[in-house]
Design a protein around this nucleic acid. Structure first.
Lengths: 111, 111
DNA sequence: CATTCATTCAACCATTAGGTTGAATATATT
DNA sequence: AATATATTCAACCTAATGGTTGAATGAATG
């Protein structure tokens, strides 16, 4: 049983292009904060905050070695969110389809 | 080619339990604003704002008939987001797996 | 035509998001 | 010990969220 806010945090974290770009970078392997921040035109501090949001959503794990913080991508929240989306989509979709079929049948009957 | 902010808006709209509940309600068919707001303990105005967010993300369509606004669920943004998630997940996942395999092989070689 | 009903608009409030700059902390390096 | 490096913390700004209440609009009804 996943906490109710877990999905909220995951989706919120993903709803930002900078954070998605950070994750993409990390998907090819660990990197330090400075390395992650390097390609962006915003301040290191701004990136540090984005990383916090990703950590809160458990999409990023931090491993400290001396003064360096190594960040890595965790796939689990995205797996969970994808599952939620597929399940939900199937459920909502099928209900709508059923309704549409019903309406079309009624329409047939009134011809 | 979907606009870059489309995914942002979709994920942001979905990152809220109230809005997800509204969508669930609408997934079983059209409803008016008041009907949608009825089960919630917050004000009608608050719900009206949530609906605006959903409309901006194109997850909800509005059909006005006289003074009544009929709201309906649109599945397309969720389909698109789900596709993005699956594609991304496969891509990020496989790259990570490949890296892990590589590291494990190296580990084997140093035995 | 006055009233009720459905909905939004406007103003306000508190919190969060996303960014900045500057100082603090802690670890490496010389 | 002094300095450079990696990172966060703190304070601040502006804009957006998520909520409130009260007034305005617009359509249906007595």
């Amino acid at each position: 049983m996943t906490a109710p806010q877990t999905l909220d945090r995951t989706l919120l974290a993903l709803a930002d292009p900078t954070r998605r770009a950070i994750l993409q970078r990390l998907s090819s392997g660990e990197a330090r904060v400075t390395e992650v921040a390097q390609p962006f035109s915003m301040s290191l501090n701004a990136i540090s905050k984005h990383i916090l949001v990703l950590e809160r959503a458990k999409l990023v794990k931090r491993r400290k070695v001396g003064r360096e913080h190594f960040l890595s991508y965790r796939s689990e929240p995205l797996d969970t969110a994808a599952k939620w989306m597929d399940d939900t989509r199937a459920f909502w979709g099928s209900r709508l389809d059923a309704l549409e079929r019903l309406l079309r049948e009624e329409d047939e009957n009134t011809k």
